[in-house]
């Protein structure tokens, strides 16, 4: 619908909308997170759900104990290599449409434990992360801001065309491969289709 006509109609008291906006409004207004936390960021997530910050204002207060009912996975904390397969498996068990927030430095990159032998250097090696919330840990306000940003992202997703969400693409993968414990490290060490590290360009190569 033409934007000008729409604003003209709204001045006359006629509110118009599109199926896409209605659909996205429903999706973004009830983003139910999966009830799990991995480390100290989870404490901030819990604080965000309590009365002082009150995540319920964004329709995201219904922390689901089962992945079958969750829309959003908040990876709140350090993902150890022992925990990574469980996290990926839980993500696989969530129904579409589903979103991932990497909360805190550890979930983004391994954080202060990046040099350690047993910590995954970022959950985006295995999962399609929609939003990164930096901080160590991020304050509850930061998580709320992240949820608002996620809502903006959901609202902006078209239902047709190239930018449509994954659940509307017939050929998009339903599951992401779960890593297994190899002799030295998790195998595969990363999901090649998701994670592409920035290539270094050396300018003064001798």
């Amino acid at each position: 619908m033409d934007e000008g006509l729409r604003s003209e109609l709204s001045k006359q008291g006629v509110f118009t909308t599109t199926l896409q906006e209605l659909y996205n409004w429903g999706r973004r207004s009830s983003v139910w997170p999966l009830n799990f936390g991995l480390a100290c960021c989870a404490i901030e997530m819990i604080a965000a759900s309590m009365s002082r910050w009150d995540i319920a204002r964004f329709g995201a207060e219904v922390f689901r104990p089962s992945p079958r009912q969750a829309d959003l996975m908040i990876v709140a904390g350090t993902v150890t290599k022992k925990m990574a397969p469980m996290v990926v498996r839980l993500y696989n068990q969530m129904p579409e449409p589903k979103y991932v927030i990497a909360m805190g430095a550890c979930a983004i990159s391994g954080g202060p434990f990046k040099q350690g032998y047993n910590v995954l250097k970022g959950i985006d090696r295995y999962l399609p992360v929609d939003l990164h919330i930096p901080g160590c840990p991020p304050k509850p306000e930061a998580l709320l801001h992240g949820i608002m940003k996620l809502q903006e992202k959901i609202a902006a997703q078209p239902l047709t065309g190239d930018g449509r969400p994954r659940h509307l693409q017939a050929d998009a993968p339903a599951e992401f491969p779960v890593p297994a414990y190899g002799p030295y490290d998790l195998t595969p060490a990363k999901n090649e289709t998701l994670w592409r590290p920035a290539a270094l360009e050396r300018q003064n190569a001798a």
Partner: peptide
Amino acid sequence: PRKPGAEK
């Protein structure tokens, strides 16, 4: 949108 799988 149905996307079943072994894990799911």
